[in-house]
Amino acid sequence: MLENWAHLWDQLPLIVRIVASILVITVPLLIGMAMLTYFERKVMAAMQLRQGPALVGPWGLLQAFADGLKLLSKEVIIPAGANRVVFLAAPMLTFLLALVAWAVIPFGEGLVLADINVGVLYLFAISSLGVYGIIMAGWASNSKYAFLGGLRAAAQMVSYEVSIGLVIITVLLCVGSLNLSKIVEAQKSIWFFIPLFPMFIIFFISALAETNRAPFDLPEGESELSGGFNVEYSSMAFALFFLGEYINMILMSGMTSILFLGGWLPPLDIAPLNWIPGPLWFILKICFCLFCFIWVRATLPRYRYDQLMRLGWKVFLPFSLIWVVLTAGVLVYFDLLPK
């Protein structure tokens, strides 16, 4: 039966197979994103002793879809003096970049859309492009709050990319390949968050800064910029920014699980644990990281801007640089370098 299906699958033209696999990734991703906003509101409500959304659908499960419908039915307002083309291109770019990154994510052994040699670099490149949507939105809105938000985003994301790059280098030193599937397979014996624990923490904090999440959500700082780069956006244009931000959160959680938490691998390769299929483990790990994202948001106050810069350049950068050298030294000395 299964072989028949596989045979039928191979018979389909290439273009159909590619479109089908893209849909298989993006549709659950968008539903997952909707569920994430619900999850975030429920978890934060629980942490603040509230109920959270509870009225739309059973346990409020359909709240996210109601919100989406509401945004769809609103009017797109383009401010006078805004640069129309750039203004409308910015949210599209944000959303597009958030989705294309998923092409290289391995969900299980061999379950990947494009198994390219330089997967990690591709992810790093795409996540560093995310800032353009925000800068373009800030500039094109022709509003000082939006512009300040855009400038903050640019400076912040460039600063934290440096330490993310160095963290990725330490992981690559232990793997010897830039391919994401190989990175996961290299963690068969031990997940990298144990030997590289400080880098795991730095990566997680930098991921918070890279996705503009609390406590580093300065580009949208409600208290001083009244919403930041997306003040002037309404309706679907706003919704696209929102979607982009949440999909980026899921992506960063996925990257954390691939680099440090062993991707689709079970914690121990023993009987009850390895019955659970790999993709499920991967999703569980992503959920764990997302919970941490929300937990941080519900707990910590926002950073001041100069403190944010100081943390990126004066603390994370030197520390991760030292760890790169240290890891390389240990690997060479004990002859553990991957062949």
Binding site: I116, F124, L151
Partner: peptide, 22 residues
């Protein structure tokens, strides 16, 4: 030359051009 391509995007598009735009 996928390595050079990715480095081009990371360095020039992801960092240099951001500051330039800034």
């Amino acid at each position: 030359a996928e390595f050079v391509a990715m480095i081009l995007v990371i360095v020039y598009v992801g960092a240099v051009a951001v500051l330039f735009l800034f």
